[in-house]
Simulated assay, not measured.
Amino acid sequence: MALATGRSFLLQPCSLSKSTSIHKSPACGTSSWLRHAGAEITKPCRRTCIAAQQRPTWLPGLDPPPYLDGTLAGDFGFDPLGLGENPASLKWYVQAELVHARFAMIGVSGILLTDTLRFAGLKTIPVWYEAGAERYFADAKTLLIIQLFLMGFVETKRYMDFVSPGSQAKEGSFFGLEAAFEGLEPGYPGGPLLNPLGLAKDIKNAHEWKLKEIKNGRLAMVAMLGIFVQASVTHVGPIDNLVEHLSDPWHKTIVQILGSSS
């Protein structure tokens, strides 16, 4: 049984050993033995050994909700709105966070890469928030329809695998390309296309990889929010903002920029 009060405790019952005198057990304290009518009668030892184990929480000393028991990757007991009280909802929110985190990591990487190339001299590359207005191999309406179709198809497959794990890996369920994705578990597809380096093949014991991914994904979501705010206020990309700040760190900060814009 575990008690969660900012840290978890393992409660282990004491073991009994026969003895004719009072002694101390290094594992579970004192065990008493009483003599009565020439026979040894044991006095049960009901004390417990408490071994404290640290459980990191988003706010030290805070009691995490009982439904967040630390088994989920990246679980630090943060749910101020109680969104995860329903087990079914919590299961879906885990998948939703994974998808948003991955999109944020791809988005931040793309924005920083194109912004760096543009700052380095490739002026033909548009600022990220104007890239959608550029003309590519097709007009904007055609691209929108293609995007809706492709994303709708992928999201439908993902939802079907969430509802019935493993159903989308059956032969013939994906035009004969099932082995190229080789789903590991809901939310963690694999195969040579989505896991070319072969990382975390044993997904059941890949807690460390899951934790690293969700931490980086959460950081990327915060970074994406910051990039949105910067673009709205300064009308330039993040690399331009960074270079301007480094040119005069003490006078060109977020406080001064937001103050001047208002």
Rank of each mutant, 00 (worst) to 15 (best):
F76K: 04
F78Y: 09
L113P: 03
Y93V: 07
I106G: 11
V108R: 00
Y129T: 07
L112G: 03
A73D: 04
L143G: 05
D63T: 13
D79G: 00
I41L: 15
L98A: 12
P165T: 00
M160N: 08
G77C: 01
A52E: 11
Q95S: 06
A140C: 12
K141F: 14
A104K: 03
F149W: 13
L98M: 07
F103R: 04
F137Y: 14
A133C: 09
F149P: 04
A104R: 03
G152L: 01
S109I: 07
Q147C: 14
E97H: 10
A51S: 14
T48L: 15
R158V: 06
P80R: 02
L112T: 03
L144D: 13
K141S: 15
T116D: 05
A120H: 05
A52R: 11
T71Q: 05
T142N: 08
P56C: 03
K141D: 13
L143M: 10
G121M: 04
I146K: 11
D161N: 14
F78C: 05
F103G: 05
K157W: 12
W128R: 00
R118M: 04
V163F: 12
I50R: 14
A180N: 09
G110Y: 10
R158I: 09
Q53S: 13
L112K: 03
T114I: 08
A52Q: 12
A101E: 03
Q53I: 14
L81R: 06
R46H: 10
S109F: 10
P165Q: 04
P87E: 02
G61P: 01
F119H: 13
R158G: 06
D161Y: 04
L117W: 08
L150F: 15
G82R: 03
L72A: 12
S109C: 10
R118A: 06
D79R: 01
R47M: 12
A138W: 08
A88D: 07
V108M: 02
R158P: 00
P44R: 15
E130R: 12
P165G: 02
F174D: 05
A180Y: 10
Q168S: 06
M151Q: 12
T114P: 01
E134K: 15
F162E: 02
L68F: 02
L62Y: 02
L98R: 09
A131V: 05
F149T: 11
F153D: 09
G82M: 06
R135D: 07
Y129C: 06
V94F: 08
G166A: 00
F162T: 05
C45P: 03
Y129F: 13
S164R: 14
S89L: 15
Y159A: 12
K170P: 00
E134W: 13
L113D: 02
E178W: 03
L143Q: 08
L117G: 02
G107H: 08
P165I: 01
T71E: 05
Q168D: 00
G82D: 04
G70K: 01
W128C: 02
R102G: 10
R46I: 11
D63P: 09
L59Y: 08
L144E: 13
A52I: 09
K141C: 14
W58S: 00
A138K: 10
A120G: 06
E40V: 13
R55L: 08
V108S: 04
M160D: 06
T42N: 14
G132C: 00
G176A: 09
P65L: 15
G166C: 03
